[in-house]
Design a protein around this nucleic acid. Structure first.
Length: 466
RNA sequence: GGAGCCAUCGCCAAGUGGUAAGGCCGUAGCCUGCAAAGCUACUAUCCCCAGUUCAAAUCUGGGUGGCUCCUCCA
């Protein structure tokens, strides 16, 4: 397995810190609003990573956190009058539901900030005791970035870049402009407070992840985990700060490899709330099937920016349709074993820093080859069984192709419509027998106007919802 | 003002030193009552300029264009 490491800016051969085991931490969402396409892409990218590592035989532990204490959540509490728990539980549950519609496997560990308060407190106290953090009069605790000579090594930032030019707001209580809050003490108006030895207050954003990793992973003398993953926008300051805290608290590096996924853009611009162009996953799922969204969102390499548009999505659907048509063609058989060459080609592609483009082309070639062989000899039983096994393997590794083909082509068709369609087809078959081709074509046009496409095969007329 | 990423056929998109994968669209053919589906065939020298090299889309330098980070953000 080769993965592109953001630190070294190159592809590296992956060698886990503990033989046969892989530990991954993925920065999850702050649960104050619905998940958007960007969240989906991030989760999907690393779902593909987990699946590939598992297929290679590793025992993978993935942790993905939920940030359930945050200023934005507090704002939401004030706006809605709901409790913190009501808000965060709602968004956590819809997040899980939406990701599962994309066939994204749930992380094996899903820690929440509110359930990690002791670990957070412990790490902050440790940082204070070691002299890496300081408490100010208000009770806030800041991390002292000047105490870490390696600060900046994750995001490749020069130690002393012109702070005057940056937009960091001037804060008189901080020793250095880049110092950041580990703990925010409660003032009298604050509603969300946790009692700790530090003060009554709430944790800063960056410390959560560090503390959760310390709590859930044992690691080695050198690293806490193998892979730290997240969106490219988290590289600075979030991951820099996280790495620095953990380095200072533990005496070793946080992660051996760092992976970052690119953005989802709408019309060439970053999707964000302030631009008013964010696309919620739940809205996308209302229009498109989750499996098609998965195929589409996964079809571009995870490090590239992804420009979302409907036309490309429909192109992806056509490509997935072809796989399912083949599946329909071989489907009454029972799966045997995967073709070795196919399996290797697919896994090799994914093992090269998740090269999905190559993997998809391997699938397309397998589809075309099988269709050709079946055109020449429709009764190749062994081939059909093997192809079914191949498709099962695709489902395992890439997460699509797992539906029953007839079900796939009937998404969005209810029983009543189905009966209507079948009645029209019956009529057309009869007209065909009587060589009344004008009626045949009229019936086909009628079906087409219902978005139903028909195909005459040796087994009779079959239909698909397009 | 600092830092970084990207630029490949009409569209999407691999390839990062050895002579341009794949998909969509298009054209022609086989099949079909006609279609659809499926199959076959055909379509790019890689933003511009200069350099390194026997050899560059791939490396270096300089442009141009797009995006992102430095503020909460997947």
């Amino acid at each position: 397995m080769y993965i592109y490491d953001t630190l070294h800016k190159t592809k590296l051969l992956f060698e886990p810190i503990i033989d046969g085991e892989v530990s991954i931490y993925l920065c999850g969402p702050t649960v104050y609003d619905n998940a958007h396409l960007g969240h989906a892409r991030s989760s999907l990218s690393f779902d593909l990573l987990v699946r590939t590592l598992k297929a290679l035989g590793y025992n993978v532990t993935l942790a993905q956190n939920f940030t359930d204490v945050d200023d934005k959540i507090i704002t939401k509490i004030q706006e809605t009058g709901k409790t913190l728990k009501e808000i965060t539980e709602y968004y956590i549950s819809s997040y899980k539901q939406e990701m599962s519609a994309l066939h994204i496997q749930e992380a094996s560990l899903q820690p929440k900030a509110t359930e990690s308060m002791e670990a957070i407190e412990e790490m902050i106290l440790k940082l204070i005791n070691l002299g890496f953090a300081y408490r100010v009069e208000s009770g806030d605790v800041y991390f002292d970035t000047s105490k870490d000579s390696l600060y900046g090594s994750i995001s490749h930032r020069v130690a002393d870049d012109a702070v005057t030019q940056s937009r960091i707001e001037v804060n008189q209580v901080k020793k250095n402009p880049k110092d950041f809050a580990l703990w925010k003490a409660c003032s009298s108006q604050d509603i969300i407070c946790f009692d700790t030895q530090l003060s009554s207050g709430r944790p800063g954003w960056h410390i959560e992840c560090s503390a959760m990793i310390a709590k859930h992973f044992v690691g080695t003398q050198e690293y806490s985990i193998d892979i730290h993953a997240g969106g490219a926008d988290l590289l600075f300051p979030h991951h820099e700060n996280e790495a620095s805290q953990s380095r200072c608290a533990s005496g070793h590096e946080l992660s051996k490899y760092w992976m970052h996924n690119g953005f989802v853009q709408i019309d060439g611009e970053k999707m964000s709330k302030s631009l008013g162009n964010s696309f919620f996953l739940k809205d996308a799922l209302n229009i498109y099937d989750g499996e098609i969204l998965r195929y589409y969102l996964g079809s571009v390499h995870y490090r590239n920016d992804f420009n979302f548009n409907e036309e490309d999505l429909l192109t992806s659907k056509k490509r997935l349709d072809k796989l399912y048509r083949l599946k329909k063609r071989v489907t009454p058989s029972k799966a045997s074993t995967v073709a070795k060459g196919f399996q290797k080609a697919l896994l090799d592609a994914m093992s090269d820093d998740l090269n999905v483009s190559v993997a998809l082309s391997v699938i397309d070639q397998m589809v075309a080859e099988t269709n050709e062989r079946l055109d020449n000899n429709p009764k190749e039983k062994a081939l059909k069984k093997e192809v079914l096994a191949n498709i099962d393997y695709i489902f395992e590794l890439l997460g699509f192709g797992g539906k029953e083909p007839y079900e796939y082509f009937q998404i969005g068709v209810d029983q009543e419509l189905k009966e209507q369609i079948e009645a029209l087809i019956l009529q057309r078959t009869q007209a065909k027998k009587e060589k009344d081709f004008a009626l045949c074509d009229a019936l086909r046009d009628e079906l087409e106007s219902m978005d139903i496409m028909i195909m005459d095969t040796h087994q009779g007329t079959v239909w698909e919802k397009i």
